[in-house]
Every structure is written in C-alpha cells, then in structure tokens.
Amino acid sequence: MGLSNSKKDSMLRKTIYDFIVNDIDEKPIKLSNYQGKVLIIVNVACSCPLTRRNYNQLNQLYSKYNEKGLEILAFPCNQFYNQEAGSNEEIKDYVKNDLKAKFNLFSKINVNGKNACDLYIYLRFKSSLAGKNIDMNFGKFLIDRQGNVINYYKSNQDPLSFENDILSLLNQ
C-alpha cells in the first residue's frame, strides 16, 4: 500500500473517533458524534449486483436496532467495476428514493490505493484485513461501542448473517 512507517504509526495511534468525514452533501461530520454506538461501516455502490440485497438487509437492521444504538455509515465507492459512477447528488437521490435507505450516507471515497480515505486505511489496519485491500463493494466493518474494530465481513456475507454479532455488541 505504500504507507510510510511514520504515517502508519500515526494512523494506528488514532481512534475511530478522531476522524472527520464528509456526508453525502459534503458537510464535515465528526465520527466522535457516534461515540457509544455500535457501527457498521460499509463501502457501497448503486450498480453492483449485491446492491439491492445489501441495502434491503442493512435497512432491516437499521430499522430494528437503531433505537438500541446501531448506526450504519455507508460510503459510496467507485473502485470496483465502475459501479458507483454517479455524482454525490445522483447517488443520494437513488439511495434515498429508490433503495429507501434511512441510514447515514457519506461522500464518495476510495477505500484502496494511494488515494484511499484515511478512515479506510485505519479500518483496514485495525481489522482482520491487516492492511490488505478491500476486495469488492459491500465490505462491512463492525465497530463496538468503544470504537474498536470487531470484525470485517466480506462483500459476499449478507448483513443479516452477522445479526447475532450486532446484538451481542448492543447488549454489552
């Protein structure tokens, strides 16, 4: 990935709550706003074959557990097969109106490579990926209420398949 040792060390000393990301309207959002919540952080794409199933299941989880402390942070990414080619405005319109997502949608980012978002560099190093690249759309990171990366679920793992893991963290 080409990170210098000092950049890597600096990144690993951070917590998830140190990051500021832009929402889909380009408004800066401090992740410290989510302190005490269980988070699913997921890279999404509107034109991926996995889109409808993942959004449907993420919507189900959000509706069921948001009041208990679950937040879902979705980051559009166009690094896989050009499946998120639209502008932030087009993505927002499709996701909110067609896919009916109620959870948080952020500005389009890169999750891999030299232009990867710092948050994703951090997540990749703090998870079972151990700094390796995300392989596809809908890779999901599960974060506990203290901001620890608990697990990474590959794109082929449905969100409902780890519902028990979410429940366990919500009940802690």
Results as ranks from 00 to 15, higher is better:
Gly2Ala: 10
Gly2Val: 01
Leu3His: 13
Ser4Ile: 02
Lys7Tyr: 15
Lys8Asn: 03
Lys8Gln: 13
Arg13Ile: 02
Lys14Val: 01
Ile16Lys: 03
Tyr17Gln: 02
Phe19Glu: 10
Phe19Val: 06
Asn22Ile: 03
Glu26Asn: 14
Lys27Pro: 00
Pro28His: 06
Ile29Val: 14
Lys30Tyr: 10
Ser32Met: 09
Val38Arg: 05
Ile40Met: 10
Ile41Trp: 08
Cys46Tyr: 00
Ser47Ile: 04
Cys48Met: 03
Cys48Phe: 11
Pro49Gln: 04
Tyr62Thr: 02
Asn66Cys: 10
Lys68Gln: 12
Gly69Val: 04
Phe75Glu: 13
Pro76Met: 13
Tyr81Met: 14
Asn82Ile: 07
Glu84Met: 08
Glu90Ile: 09
Ile91Thr: 11
Asn104Met: 11
Leu105Thr: 09
Ser107Ala: 13
Ile109Ala: 07
Asn110Leu: 06
Val111Met: 12
Asn112Arg: 12
Lys114Met: 03
Asn115Gly: 14
Asn115Met: 09
Leu119Arg: 05
Tyr120Glu: 09
Leu123Glu: 09
Phe125Met: 09
Ser127Gln: 08
Leu129Gly: 07
Gly131Leu: 08
Gly131Tyr: 05
Lys132Ser: 15
Ile134Phe: 12
Asn137Ser: 15
Asp144Ala: 03
Gly147Arg: 01
Asn148Val: 05
Asn151His: 07
Tyr153Gly: 03
Lys154Arg: 15
Ser155Val: 11
Pro159Met: 04
Pro159Arg: 06
Ser161Met: 12
Phe162Trp: 08
Glu163Ala: 02
Ile166Gln: 01
Leu167Met: 10
Ser168Lys: 13
